[in-house]
Structures are given as C-alpha cells and as structure tokens.
Design a protein around this nucleic acid. Structure first.
Length: 488
DNA sequence: TTTTGAGTTGTTCGA
DNA sequence: GTCGAACAACTCAAA
C-alpha cells in the first residue's frame, strides 16, 4: 500500500514520449508511490556514439525539443513534472535515485543494441546501490527474438516475416494513460533551451514548424483522422505525392508519441467497423509491418547503417563526386521529381515515400554514389529518421539489402514523375521555377519547345539546371557496374 | 529431404 | 497505343 512516505519511482523516458500505452509509467503509477519522470539527453555514453550508435540528426533534434515540451505539459496536467538532465544515463539515473531515495527505476526496452547496452549500464549502476531496475515491454509489436527462421536467424524476406508476425501476434490492449500521478518532491533539472536542440542562427526550422505538430495529442488525432477520412483508397493513394494519401505518423512513431500497438489496435477496430476498407487498412498495417521488419533487421545487424547486408557489395566501386552529391542534396539535379523531393525534405523534414525511392535510386544508380552518403543525409534531414527504416530502405534501393532486388531495377525519374504526379502539382509546389510549364513537359523540361520554355520563364542551365546526367547513360552505366559485381 | 514457387514499390523492347 | 517477355539470384515456406 502506498503511504505518504513511500519511496518514489523513477520513470526513465527515452523513445516513448507519451503517457498512454506506456508500460513503465503505467506500472509506476499503479504502485501509488510518487513518480519522478526523467529524460536524459545522453550524448556521452559510449554505446550511443560511433560506431553503431549515432547522435540525432538536426531535424530530429528539433522534433525532440517540441516533443519534450509536449510531454512536460501532459505530465503537468497529470500532476507530475518532467526532470531534464544531460549526460551519461548510468551516472545521472543512479545519482538521481540516490538523491531522491527512489526504490525503483522503470523504463521501456528498446530493441536496439546501443540502447540495450546503455540500459545494461544503468541497471548495473542501480544494482550497485541497491535500487531495483524494472524493464518493461518493448517498443515493437513483437520481440525480435520471437520471429526466427529455422536456423535461428532473423528473417530476410518481408512477406513470410509479416505473415508469421501477424499469426503469432496477440498484443494486449493498449494501456490507458494514468489519470493522476502522485507527484514527487521537486528536483532540479536542466532548462530544455540549454540543450540547444533547436537551430537559432540561422533558424532553418520554419518549414518544420509549418508542417508538423509534434506530441502525443496530435499523434493520436492524426491517427484518428487518418482512419476516419484518409485511409479509403490508401492502396493507390499512398503513391501519390501530389495528394495527402499517407498517415504522416512516422515521426510520431519515431519518438514514441504513439506506440505501434496503439496503431495496430485502432486500425483493427476501424477495419471491423468498416469492412469495405479492410484492404486499405491491411495495406496501411503492412507499412507498420515494414517498420517492424526494419527494426528486427537492425536488431540482428547493429551496424546496418554501414555494412552491406549482401557482402558481395563490399567491393563495389562507388563514385566519389562531391559536386553531384551536393547537387542532389540541394535539389539541383535537373530531374524535377528528384529535385522536388529533395527540396521538400530540406524544407519540411520529410519526403513522400514514393519520391524517396526515386530520389534514392537516382543517387545510387544514376550517380553511382555510395548509399551510405544518402543514408547519412536523410538521417540528418528527416524528422522521422529511424535507425531501422532509414538504412534498411537505403540498402533495399541500392540492391544490397533484404530483398530479392533485381539489379536492373533502375527508377526512371521521368516515368515515375509522370505516373505518380501526372499534373505536376508536386513539382510545381517544390520547384517553383518550373511552375508555369505545362504538365506534358514538367517532368522533362529539356524536351519542351523553346517557345514553351520561354513562355514559362524557364531558361535551362540558368533558372533551372540541365540534367546532371542523361537517364539512358546513367541507367546503362549502373547496369554495367552492377553486372561487374555479379561477375566478380 | 528435396523441390518448387513466390517474393513492396520497375523498365525497356519488340510484337 | 497495349502487352508480354526478359532482365538474376537468393530466402523462405509449403508441398
């Protein structure tokens, strides 16, 4: 039974910046003891640094700051507060446990090697001072150890993986948010601003602020709105960058503002209510499955962001071309769909999924630049940069990943643009210097008649670049390079 | 045990 | 214009 003098619990928040379906917070709250909520900004613990842990990218740091503010506000409404500390998690948590007289520290597991290593350090430092460490349910639908092939390895093909996971899955209902938390005595913490997570001069976050509302509340209303109005037609609509056809949940999931389990249950409920939408909802859920698949892959291959899943690629002769890399990063390749995507990324911290594939394929295949260069750029610029999805999908595009990828699959940026942005709305939005071109040529301005270009105010090579590589030339060069790889 | 079929996202070429 | 074939190679599940 809780009493006034009960020792407080510490709940250590990490990539689970929410109150609902938060096993550690729920368990702490259920004891009735005072709850200390803690977030540690840890850039010093060695497992979180190179080689396989990485500091957050710039866009993700911005998101984290907003999300922590939201979490602070939500906790305050529940009667508690969030203590912010910066430094080594093991030292800070043990120190706080000692200072506050806490008996237990609780946290949710993260199925990633660097995070597990830090959690192990924390657990060890707590054991040394006689404080209980309670590790709660993880951040995935299924424990990676539970989905294995006959050899005991993680699975490398999505469909069997997803079938297996769905068959074995019976996730418990999401936990409710604690209504009222028993507050602990005030503890000193850092001011969020002192962490400098947000850009100051120059302030490049304007586009992020216009685009996103981080935090648990908007994550849940986004999910609700998507399942009510947005999911119909998802199977095809998700491929259209010129429309709002996706859920936009990825950055919320990335920071745990909503759990995959909550998404799973809400989608299942929606499918039961509206059977006509079940195909669209299944497709949506399979995207959650891909996130899961990539995380399981990362669990097996902690250096996924640097190591080719297929070792045959280790000797691949990538080109070193800083000019081309920079043109790609800035959205100045001369291919409108690629440039639109790269500029959307820079402005909003996100890029439509279909366009990600086209832009990534362009870097890797047309420019023959190492996928790791692209992965790193995305890591720094995406608000939803995910330790699993980002490298796994880059490897998928490069053909060295978990996929029966035909090496000859080279996206044609003109065809992709014409197919998925047929009126050119997406290009017009993000490449305004082409906005006046007719749809017929907007994905290949070099093929427009001189008068057409003039009427649209386009002067190739001056107002908008010529293609930095001809599609046919680039495609054949890529096929030749990949053919050499097979011959070797 | 061995074999067989299927597997997120494509493009080009020639009939 | 549409349509089918060709473009490899490996993992996993089911027969």
């Amino acid at each position: 039974m809780a009493t006034k003098s009960a020792a407080p619990c510490i709940v250590w928040f990490r990539e689970d910046l929410r109150l609902s379906d938060h096993p550690a917070l729920h368990a702490a709250s259920a004891t009735g003891a005072p709850v200390i909520c803690l977030y540690v900004f840890d850039e010093t613990s060695s497992p979180l640094r190179a080689p396989h842990g990485r500091p957050l990218g710039g866009a993700a740091r911005w998101w984290l700051a907003q999300s922590l503010r939201n979490l602070q506000a939500s906790l305050q409404r529940a009667g508690a507060s969030l203590v912010l500390r910066r430094g080594s998690a093991a030292e800070i948590i043990a120190g706080l446990a000692r200072d506050s007289g806490a008996g237990t520290v609780l946290w949710n597991e993260i199925a990633q090697a660097p995070h597990r290593a830090v959690a192990d350090q924390v657990a060890a430092s707590l054991m040394a001072i006689g404080v209980t460490a309670q590790r709660c349910g993880g951040d995935l639908l299924a424990d990676p150890n539970s989905i294995r092939n006959k050899e005991g390895r993680g699975m490398r093909v999505f469909t069997p993986f997803w079938r297996r996971l769905q068959a074995s899955l019976d996730p418990p209902r999401p936990l409710p948010a604690p209504r009222k938390l028993c507050p602990a005595a005030d503890l000193a913490g850092d001011r969020l601003e002192s962490w400098h997570l947000e850009p100051a001069r120059p302030d490049w976050a304007g586009g992020l602020r216009e685009t996103w509302k981080p935090g648990e509340i908007s994550a849940r209303s986004r999910l609700t709105a998507f399942l009510a109005d947005g999911v119909a037609g998802y199977c095809t609509g998700r491929d259209r960058p010129d429309r709002i056809g996706t859920s936009g949940l990825s950055p919320h999931l990335r920071f745990g503002e909503i759990s995959p389990r909550q998404v799973w249950h809400a989608a299942g409920f929606a499918a039961a209510e509206r059977p006509a939408l079940s195909a669209d909802i299944d497709k949506f859920l399979s995207e959650l499955g891909w996130r899961e698949f990539c995380r399981h892959l990362l669990f097996d291959v902690p250096d996924l962001m640097v190591r080719n899943l297929q070792p045959a690629f280790d000797g691949f002769a990538w080109r070193h071309d800083d000019m081309a890399l920079r043109a790609w990063q800035r959205g100045l390749t001369g291919y409108p769909i690629v440039d639109a995507g790269m500029r959307q990324l820079w402005h909003c911290g996100v890029m439509h999924n279909r366009v990600r594939m086209v832009a990534a394929s362009f870097l890797v295949k047309h420019l023959l630049i190492d996928w790791r260069q692209g992965e790193r750029w995305f890591w720094d610029t995406l608000v939803d940069a995910d330790a699993g999805s980002n490298p796994a999908n880059w490897q998928w595009v490069a053909g060295c990943g978990a996929d029966a990828a035909p090496y000859f699959r080279v996206f044609n940026p003109v065809l992709q643009g014409e197919k998925f942005d047929p009126d050119g709305f997406y290009v017009r939005r993000w490449v305004p210097e082409l906005a006046q071109l007719p749809a017929r040529v907007i994905h290949q301005p070099w093929s427009a008649a001189p008068l057409e270009l003039k009427a649209a105010g386009v002067e190739l090579g001056r107002t908008y670049p010529e293609p930095i590589i001809d599609h046919k030339v680039g495609r054949e060069r890529a096929l030749a390079a990949y053919a050499r790889l097979r011959g070797a």
